[in-house]
Design a protein around this nucleic acid. Structure first.
Lengths: 212, 212
DNA sequence: CATATATAACTGACCGGTCAGTCAGTAGCA
DNA sequence: TGCTACTGACTGACCGGTCAGTTATATATG
């Protein structure tokens, strides 16, 4: 909250940090948008949390909507990267790769900060359809395609059964998303460990429900 | 939009229908909230769509927020009912019941009107946590519990493999939810038939991915 | 090192538009 | 004639966005 004085006995009212500002403002915007929604969030609140006045925010962003767009934009790339990294990890062993993806995704999405952007996107998508669509194309569909591709390679390699690859992708992602939504959006607080959850998911994923 | 005149050559400016009003207003509210979000929706819009003036809305509801709460309340029960009906259908054959549930749920949620309330809940849950929690307890968790119970009965009957019932429930619901979200919130428009999707889901659900 | 000058970073009071909620009055009905 | 359902103009608060003025820092000068 209060800026640390450097040496002068009187703390300066503000410091010049033009290059760090945009990121600080976006951090604050993500926090406030996530917790109040886009409309209910006041630019004043965002400015306050970033340690600036409202006017300063408008030095870096044209409008409240620009704040939203800039935020989504900044958050999308890292997630897309992470997805790519997950999919590329050990591409020659589809089974092990799938285990890795499920385990990591389960753990990642359990973190409220990681899920903050998806949560925000879900909340604003009705008002800003392009944001929703952009997010789907760059994140959701990338993940789905990666898993579908992984499945196809696994079928060729003889380690996966023949099946609809799209359905496989949904079977991998769906349960993880469902849990995250219950927890981060609908306020559930079950206390199963992420590893236990991933293991149970993987067991069912590979073996199915049928007795044999 | 325009009220149908009953017999008079000049259409009356309004009709006395006090008992039908609340539902009409809630219908309009659901439409406008879903399409614009809670804040961006104007009470004037809702009134207009219901064929009334804004003042009339306040004869039936205390506030905009009361409109939201009344709406969720009204929409929760039917869905809970429907879930109960699905779960109770043919309780002595767990396998067939699961097939039925997946097929029906896949079809139901494909309808934008059916998914309108869940979509709205997801959007407002950040601002009104009790609404999210209420919806989870009365709808989401009911569905999860119903499927988990079904699985346990199936295990006892020897038709399902032993497994974590919670994980089974997520494996049943998750993929359906994921598809609905992509379609209704993120604007995806794939054109797989619902029956094909349900079949692919069921195949994987029962048989899993492992080769045998 | 001290002082003057320039300018970038920032503040906060203010304006204008929007909208939830109110209420005095009007239309339909019995 | 009286009652109920309803209208629509109005109000008051709120908030996005602006801008004249202030403060911190960099640079120039002695």
């Amino acid at each position: 909250m209060t800026a640390a004085p450097r040496k002068a006995p009187t703390a300066p009212k503000f410091r010049r940090r033009a290059d760090a500002r945009p990121d600080e403002i976006l951090d604050a915007a993500l926090a406030v948008f996530t917790e109040k929604g886009f409309d209910a969030a006041r630019v004043d609140d965002i400015a306050g949390r970033a340690g600036l006045s409202k006017g300063a925010v408008y030095l870096y962003f044209d409008s409240k909507e620009a704040l939203l767009r800039g935020l989504i934009e900044r958050e999308v790339s890292p997630i897309a990267m992470r997805l790519k990294a997950l999919a590329d990890a050990g591409g020659d062993d589809p089974q092990a790769t799938l285990r890795l993806i499920v385990t990591m995704a389960t753990q990642l999405i359990d973190d409220a900060r990681v899920f903050a952007t998806p949560k925000l996107v879900l909340a604003v998508a009705a008002r800003f359809p392009e944001i929703g669509e952009h997010y789907r194309k760059r994140v959701v569909d990338q993940a789905i395609d990666a898993i579908a591709g992984l499945h196809r390679r696994g079928v060729e390699a003889g380690v996966f059964r023949q099946a609809d690859s799209g359905a496989v992708a949904r079977l991998v992602m769906g349960p993880i998303l469902l849990f995250a939504m219950r927890k981060h959006i609908l306020g559930a607080k079950d206390k199963i460990s992420t590893t236990a959850r991933a293991e149970a998911h993987l067991d069912l994923l590979f073996e199915g429900l049928a007795v044999r």
